[in-house]
Design a protein around this nucleic acid. Structure first.
Lengths: 128, 128
DNA sequence: TTTATATTTCGCCATATAGCTAATGCATCG
DNA sequence: CGATGCATTAGCTATATGGCGAAATATAAA
C-alpha cells in the first residue's frame, strides 16, 4: 500500500460541490426527505435543467444518491459510510445550516409541496 | 434574539475559500508553521500577487490571520475559537489532507525553505 | 402507436475566478 | 533623502461556473 494517499482531488471535488448556495439548499432539503427532481425544482424556483445539473454534481461527489422509480428519479442523501470525506462534508453542511433562515424557508415550502403532492404530483405550482 | 440565523453567506464564503487547491495547500503549510508570503511563494511556485490574493480570501473567511513584522507579514492558522464555522472547516481540511501526497511534498519543500531561510531569507530559490 | 411527462443533455451567455505582469504602498537600509 | 525589497492592488486574459431554453431520452398513459 502506498505511503501517501491522493485525497486532494476528491477533497476539492466535494468542497466545490458544497460551495454553492443552490446545492447546499438541495442538501438541506434532502436531509430527512427523499425527493424527486420536480419537487426540488418547485422549492428552489430554478429551471429543471439547472437543478438536474446540480444533482449531477452532488451525485458525482458522492453526496447524494438517485433511485429510479417509473418516470421519477428520487434523490436522497448518500449514506455510504465508507466514504468518510463525503460523510464529513454532509455533517458539516447540516450542522452549519440547520438553523439558517433560507434553509427554514425552504423546508416550509417543501412541506407545502409535499402536502399537495399526495394528490397531484409535479407540474404543480405551490401557492404563496 | 432572532429565531433563525443567517449562516448561509458565511458558510458559502468558507466553503469557496477551501474549494481551491492552492488555498488548501497554503492551509496545510500553515498548519503548525507561521510563514511569510515569500516562503509560501517559494513552495507553491506561484506569482507573489497570486499568493497574496489567496491569502486575502483565506483571511476574509476567518481561516488565517496575518501579523506584520518589519517588511514581512507572517501568516498563521486562525485560532479564534469563537468562529465555530471556520474552526470546523480547518479541522476538516487538516484531517482530510494530512496524508495527501501533494501536502507531503509541500511540507518537504517547506522544510528546505525554512532551512536556508535562517541565513538568507526570501528572494532565494530553493534547489531541487 | 401516439401522446404526455420527468429528467437529462446540449448549446448558449453572463459572470466569477485564478493566473500573470505592472504599478503602488510601505518599511528598511545606505 | 534615495534605493532596495516584501507585499498588495490594479488591470488584463483565459477558463470555469451557473443560469436558461431547446432538444433528446425514457417511461407511463391513452
Amino acid at each position: 500500500m502506498a505511503k501517501y494517499k491522493n485525497n486532494m482531488n476528491k477533497f476539492i471535488e466535494i468542497a466545490k460541490a458544497i460551495a454553492d448556495e443552490s446545492r447546499v439548499r438541495i442538501l438541506s432539503m434532502l436531509n430527512g426527505h427523499e425527493l424527486c427532481v420536480c419537487q426540488i425544482v418547485e422549492v428552489l424556483g430554478l429551471a429543471p435543467s439547472t437543478v438536474s445539473k446540480h444533482l449531477s454534481i452532488l451525485r458525482h461527489a458522492g453526496l447524494v444518491e438517485g433511485r429510479k422509480e417509473g418516470r421519477w428519479i428520487y434523490y436522497r442523501i448518500s449514506n455510504r459510510s465508507s466514504d468518510i470525506e463525503a460523510q464529513k462534508a454532509l455533517a458539516w453542511v447540516h450542522e452549519s445550516l440547520a438553523r439558517d433562515g433560507q434553509t427554514q424557508e425552504d423546508l416550509r415550502r417543501l412541506k407545502a409541496v409535499l402536502k399537495i403532492g399526495k394528490e397531484m404530483l409535479c407540474a404543480q405550482v405551490v401557492q404563496e
